[in-house]
Design a binder for these strands. Sequence first.
DNA 1: ACCTGGTCCCGGGCTCGGTTTT
DNA 2: AAAACCGAGCCCGGGACCAGGT
Length: 389
Amino acid sequence: MKIEERILRRQQTDHEPRLVRESDALNPIAHPTEPTGRGLSIEQLLDVLGPAFHGRLPSDGYVWGPKGTGKSAVIRGLFSQLDRLIGRSTGRIYTTTRAEPTADIAFVYVDGRQAQTGFALVHTVLNSLTSDPVPKQGVGADAIRARLADRLAVDSQSVVVAVDHVGEPETLAAETVCEQFDDLGSSVSTVLIGHDQPDTVTELLDDPETVRFAPYRQHTLIEILTTRQTDGLIRTAITHQQLREVAAWADGDSHDALAALFSAGLIADDNDHEQIGPDDLAAGMNAVPKPSVSLGRVLALPESRQEVLCRLVALPEADRNSVSRAADAIANDRLDLSRATIERVLYELAEAGVIRRVKVDNPERIGRPPSRLEPRFPTRVFRHLSLCD
DNA sequence: ACCTGGTCCCGGGCTCGGTTTT
DNA sequence: AAAACCGAGCCCGGGACCAGGT
């Protein structure tokens, strides 16, 4: 933490301590390095990736399950450890001392939300395999692919690419991801991570190994909340009974559970409460719609979209009762997008499921009834993390 | 070896105007 | 009739690459 931050914090907290600590502990999209309660899944994944321990390229894989089940946390952690332990660096170091053939297999994790086009995906992979700068525009996707092929051929390197969040509205479809690596089949192995059932992916990847992540059991979810809460809240903020309540409400989804707990803490702080009261907790859960879009998706949206969302959630109820009124109000709020673009963006966000349109019936009026816009993501936490203000 | 203009490429804003729904 | 809805093309900024001139 920088000195300036420390000073600012003292200035802000001179009245009384805040319930919510400034840390990522309660952030649903900040993953701990050691995920809780997913030992079995990690073993399954290690089985799939096993050939890499003997210098052979593993077969393709598909990891699937609903949001908030630890897929990203596990794969992220696993790939960074694997790359460190048996990936490039170690391979080089032991080359001269070990008789056995060395594995020159890199493990690259790509967040599909950061790489939303074929170009960006191949770019990310190549960029993590080379220290040379890779152009990020001005050159065609094919050119980047050619360079990647070149790079892999030069010292017969192989790479296992994990592409997270495939098949979301903003991200690449599994099919498109596969196409990117079609020509490099023998040196690239693909592990896709998504929500959908494996049937379509099975055809694409020619019978990949699949690993399924099921929703958390109640007691595991409580364990997760307990460990995170000790770092994210002051000690007396919440009772164990309340954590049980959140876990029961969240129904196996750690994203929703953490978002609700985070929201409750922020709301209690808003109300100057010394601890999270029953009403704060209820409001916290209320601030997380069900079903909810992952905060990771919302916070990965382009800045301009997030600005539209910031203003939308701050709008008075009446202004959200019609798409065109909402667009008017947002356009008047010092946003440097044109009115027409804002309306277009609202429709796009609705199409993507980030906000929902609800028909407002009014028999008095003639013509097609307006649509109320409802956020489908944890609004209180979004406001906190997106730096709306 | 260095400049410079032309061309291609990516990504994102913007707008138009037709279609659908009530 | 009125308003919601949205597909799709246009435009632009800026980086990369190339080739031809100095």
